[in-house]
Simulated scan of single mutants.
Amino acid sequence: MSTHKPLRAGLIGLGSMGRNHARVLHGLEGVELVAVADPVAARGSAPAGVPLVRSVAELAAAGIDYAVVACPTALHEEVALDLAERGIHALIEKPLAPSVRSAETIGRAFEKRGLVAAVGHIERFNPALRELRTRLELGELGEVLQVVTRRQGPFPARIADVGVVYDLATHDIDLTTWLTNSRYESVSSHTVARSGRPHEDMVGFIGRLSCGAITSHLVNWLSPLKERVTIVTGEHGCFVADTLTADLWFHANGSQPTEWEGLRQFRGVSEGDVTRYAVVKREPLLVEHETFRDAVLGEEADIVTLKQATDTVAVAEAVLAAAADGTSVGLDPRRPLTPL
Score class of each variant (00 low, 15 high):
T3C: 11
K5R: 13
L11H: 00
M17G: 01
N20W: 05
A22P: 00
V24R: 02
G30H: 05
D38H: 09
D38F: 04
A41R: 00
P47F: 01
L52V: 06
V53Q: 01
A57Q: 12
A60Q: 12
A61R: 11
G63K: 05
I64P: 01
D65R: 02
Y66D: 00
A67G: 01
V68I: 10
V69E: 01
P72S: 03
T73N: 05
A84Q: 03
R86D: 08
H89T: 09
S99L: 06
V100K: 02
V100G: 01
R108S: 10
F110A: 04
R113W: 06
I122Y: 10
F125P: 00
F125C: 02
A128H: 01
R130Q: 10
E131Y: 07
E137L: 15
G142D: 13
G142L: 13
G153C: 09
P156D: 11
I159T: 07
A160K: 13
D161L: 08
A169L: 08
T170Y: 05
L175N: 03
L179I: 05
V187S: 03
S189K: 02
G196T: 08
E200W: 05
D201H: 08
D201Q: 10
M202R: 13
G204A: 14
G207K: 00
S210G: 11
G212R: 07
A213I: 04
S216Y: 08
V219N: 03
P224W: 10
P224T: 13
L225G: 08
R228Y: 13
G234A: 10
G237E: 03
F239P: 00
F239I: 04
F239W: 06
V240T: 08
D242H: 05
T243N: 03
A246E: 14
L248G: 00
H251N: 12
H251V: 09
N253I: 06
G254I: 07
G254L: 09
P257Y: 09
Q265M: 13
Q265S: 14
F266V: 14
G268D: 14
V274C: 07
V274E: 13
T275F: 12
R276L: 14
Y277V: 07
A278P: 05
K281S: 12
R282D: 15
L285K: 10
F292S: 01
G298C: 11
L306N: 01
A309Y: 01
D311M: 08
T312R: 02
A314S: 12
V319F: 05
A324S: 13
D325P: 03
V329E: 07
D332N: 15
D332S: 11
P333K: 10
R334F: 08
T338F: 05
P339D: 11
